[in-house]
Simulated scan of single mutants.
Amino acid sequence: MLMHHGIGLDRFNSCSRRRAVHALYECCSCVSWAEKIADGRPYPGYDALHTAVAAGLRALSAAELEHAFDSCARETISEHSVIELERVTRARIERMLGPEEGYPEY
């Protein structure tokens, strides 16, 4: 389970750079990618974040991609492709942030 499970986009946008990089690293295991995404904050919504995430993943070097795929050992992946890495990373980010509409009040 992610250490930053359910923090929400607002908290993610406002947390320290160090914490944001750590949270993102848990999603992809690539420091340079995590730094780039963290430095793009604040994100106005999940779509903007996911667009930046996908672009960042497509810009990774071959060595960075291999390292990121190593973090997917417990995931079910259909192929060794950037598209599949985007799918896994997106799911991890959604677990990190929680639902876009937030959690219901009890």
Rank of each mutant, 00 (worst) to 15 (best):
R11E: 14
D70N: 13
W33A: 01
A59Q: 15
F12T: 05
H50W: 01
I83H: 09
A52F: 02
F69K: 00
A48H: 10
E101F: 02
C72I: 05
L65N: 01
R95S: 14
A34N: 07
M1P: 07
R11M: 08
Y103D: 04
L65Q: 00
I77H: 06
L85A: 08
E79T: 12
E26R: 11
S14H: 12
G8M: 05
L65E: 00
E64M: 03
G45H: 13
M3Y: 07
A34L: 03
E105F: 12
G98M: 08
D47E: 11
H5M: 15
M3V: 13
L24T: 10
T51C: 02
A38K: 01
P44S: 12
G56I: 01
S32G: 07
D39N: 10
S32Y: 03
F12V: 02
R18L: 09
N13T: 14
R17W: 08
A62G: 05
A54D: 14
G8T: 11
E26A: 08
L57T: 04
C27P: 03
G56K: 07
D47W: 07
R90H: 03
A68D: 00
G45M: 06
H50Y: 08
A23F: 13
L9Y: 13
S81G: 04
E79R: 10
E94T: 15
E79C: 07
V82T: 12
A54F: 03
G45D: 15
L49H: 08
R95H: 12
Y106A: 14
C15E: 13
H4N: 02
N13A: 11
I77W: 03
H50S: 07
E84R: 01
C27T: 15
C27Q: 06
